[in-house]
Every structure is written in C-alpha cells, then in structure tokens.
Amino acid sequence: MNTSREQYVREVFVREDETLLAVRQSIRDADMPSISVASEVGKLLSLVVQMTGAKRALEIGALGGYSGIVLARALPADGELVSLELLPEYATFAHENLKKAGLGDKVQYRTGEALDSLQKLHEEGQRFDVFFIDADKVNYSNYLDWAIRLANPGAVITADNVLQGDRIFDEGEQGESVVAIRAFNQKVASDDRLESLLLPFGDGLVIARVK
C-alpha cells in the first residue's frame, strides 16, 4: 500500500486518541523500539474483537502496551487479555500504560520465552477467541501451531509484519526473519484448518479463522 493510501485511511477511518498517542510517546521517551502496530492495524484488531464477540484474547509480544490497549478496550467488561512478553521490564512498562488507560485489571502478563508460556497455557486448559502475534519472526510458525491448539472454534488469529517491508517479494533477501515469514505465510495459506488472507495494512497483517 503506498503512502497516500495509508494516509487517506488514517485520516478518514482512524483517529488515535490521546491515550494511544501517549503510549507511542512513552515508548519513544523510554528509548524502546518504535515498532507498535500501525494505527489502521490497531483499528482492525479492535473491529475483529468486537465483531467476533471475543471474550478472551492472547497477544504474543507486549512491547509498550499499544496493541494491548486496543485489544483490551474492545473486549467486553468481563473479558480478559493474556499478554506474553519476553522481557519483564517491557511487561511492566506495558502494564503501566494499560493501567493509565483504565484497563489494568483486564490484562494478565506472563514473561519469559513465549513458547514456554504457550505450553503452560495449554497445560492449564486455557482457550482463546482472538490471537495477535507480534513477536520474534523466526517463531511465527511455532506460534501459529500453538494458537490453533489454544483456539476456541471459530477463533481468529492475526499476525503483524508479514510483508517485512516488502522484502518477502525479493528472493534475493534471505535474512532469517524474511525467510521465516515467507514460510509462515505459506503455512497459514495452505493449512486446511484455517481460512486466511493477507491484508496489505501497515507492514502486512495476516488474518485467519480457525474452522
């Protein structure tokens, strides 16, 4: 999607409020990576949660809490977001931002390797209605497998950064993350358990429904 199209979508359909803008600023002030989801992706995630009637959401990768706020806001009053984050300091930072947004009680953070946390969630018998994958790209395919295991029937799985700055189209690009995302996209598209599509929003968003 070219810049003019993105700008049009953002100006007409997406309006970041002061809370979300403050999260972006807090991330910059803390010298954390400025890699929160694009505003239009955030709006789509919110719509997915609301349109599916989801009560439980799982995000893999918390960073500063932007996507956490978008997801938690869209959940019903009795809904819950479980957020997996490798770094405890990032989880604490994200939680503080959700508390400022009045959503601190709707989220549970689990820190450490996401694959370990996913195994634990499975052992606990937990299930989710919406998933958002936005962490280390090398493990996207593994995260997909776990999401399907943890999914309620009809659950929606989303994953960000699946275009890798359009590098996935250049076969000369053989970096670890690019190769991993190519494999992930093919896996999502060909898995008989899923109905899926890649949307050219932001840096690309895969959205899939578990049959």
Score class of each variant (00 low, 15 high):
residue 5 R to V: 14
residue 83 S to F: 09
residue 57 A to F: 09
residue 85 E to F: 11
residue 57 A to I: 06
residue 69 I to R: 06
residue 29 D to S: 14
residue 50 Q to F: 05
residue 55 K to W: 08
residue 39 S to Q: 11
residue 5 R to E: 10
residue 98 L to A: 14
residue 10 R to S: 02
residue 44 L to G: 01
residue 20 L to P: 01
residue 53 G to T: 02
residue 4 S to Q: 13
residue 79 G to Q: 06
residue 90 Y to M: 15
residue 4 S to E: 10
residue 37 V to H: 02
residue 56 R to S: 11
residue 33 P to L: 02
residue 78 D to T: 07
residue 91 A to M: 13
residue 9 V to G: 00
residue 89 E to H: 15
residue 86 L to W: 14
residue 80 E to H: 10
residue 76 P to R: 05
residue 32 M to W: 15
residue 74 A to G: 03
residue 42 G to D: 00
residue 43 K to R: 15
residue 34 S to A: 13
residue 23 V to W: 00
residue 60 I to V: 07
residue 44 L to C: 01
residue 62 A to V: 05
residue 76 P to I: 03
residue 49 V to S: 01
residue 68 G to A: 05
residue 30 A to M: 02
residue 84 L to A: 09
residue 28 R to K: 13
residue 63 L to V: 12
residue 58 L to Y: 04
residue 82 V to Q: 12
residue 19 T to P: 07
residue 10 R to L: 06
residue 26 S to R: 12
residue 11 E to N: 07
residue 18 E to T: 03
residue 2 N to Q: 08
residue 30 A to F: 04
residue 43 K to W: 10
residue 34 S to P: 14
residue 10 R to E: 03
residue 31 D to R: 15
residue 51 M to S: 12
residue 49 V to A: 02
residue 86 L to M: 11
residue 56 R to A: 13
residue 71 L to W: 00
residue 96 E to A: 15
residue 64 G to L: 04
residue 72 A to D: 09
residue 59 E to R: 06
residue 73 R to K: 08
residue 90 Y to K: 15
residue 71 L to I: 02
residue 60 I to R: 02
residue 93 F to Q: 01
residue 79 G to T: 10
residue 14 V to P: 00
residue 64 G to P: 02
residue 15 R to I: 00
residue 55 K to M: 06
residue 52 T to D: 05
residue 6 E to N: 07
residue 75 L to G: 07
residue 59 E to C: 06
residue 59 E to F: 11
residue 43 K to S: 14
residue 76 P to M: 04
residue 43 K to G: 09
residue 6 E to Y: 08
